[in-house]
């Protein structure tokens, strides 16, 4: 039963990623990325990481993806000469030649797949039980991971200020 659900959401995630790879329309690729991120969040739940699944949806779908869509819209200008009301206003990306990228990614996957198939992970023979992890994550953040937690806060502040400064229009 759980295996079937895992496969369903895996197909969702991989289908979204493949469609992202194949489509030329940048806005479509943003929406296919949404599909993939939701599939990954579901796989998080099925690996008993409920808090991270919610965080994934809030940060990626609510933050990064909205930012990406804004980026797409802000960095596009239609050619005023070829403009027509009949055609959709698509933002297109160019592709490089497919041979080397596909060869690279295919061989990468072949190596990883072989490694996962032949590797004998002792850990996977143990039984994992489903449980909520919010409690443990909260305690770990305030105990063992306090310093990284604070550094992450400072990093976010720096990124906020830096991004606002970088995106500022030039003053003449």
């Amino acid at each position: 039963m759980i295996q079937a659900v895992v496969i369903l959401f895996s197909v969702l995630a991989i289908g979204g990623a493949l469609a992202l790879l194949l489509t030329r329309n940048v806005l479509y690729s943003a929406f296919f990325l949404l599909l993939t991120l939701l599939g990954v969040a579901a796989l998080f739940v099925l690996s008993s990481a409920d808090f991270l699944a919610v965080a994934q949806i809030m940060i990626y779908v609510g933050g990064v993806l909205v930012l990406i869509v804004f980026g797409v819209m802000l960095t596009h200008k239609t050619d005023p000469l070829n403009r027509s009301n009949q055609k959709p206003n698509a933002v297109l990306t160019n592709h490089r030649a497919w041979l080397w990228p596909v060869l690279l990614a295919g061989s990468m996957f072949a190596v990883l797949f072989q490694m996962l198939r032949q590797g004998n992970f002792v850990l996977l023979n143990r039984a994992a039980k489903y449980q909520t992890t919010v409690d443990t994550i909260g305690r770990q953040l305030m105990a063992e991971y306090l310093v990284p937690f604070e550094i992450a806060g400072v990093l976010l502040l720096v990124a906020l200020v830096g991004a606002a400064y970088l995106a500022m229009p030039e003053r003449n």
Binding site: A17, L21, A105
Partner: peptide, 10 residues
């Protein structure tokens, strides 16, 4: 692994 490879290709 598959997602990583597809991301690399993208």
């Amino acid at each position: 692994a598959l997602l990583f490879s597809i991301g690399l290709a993208v």
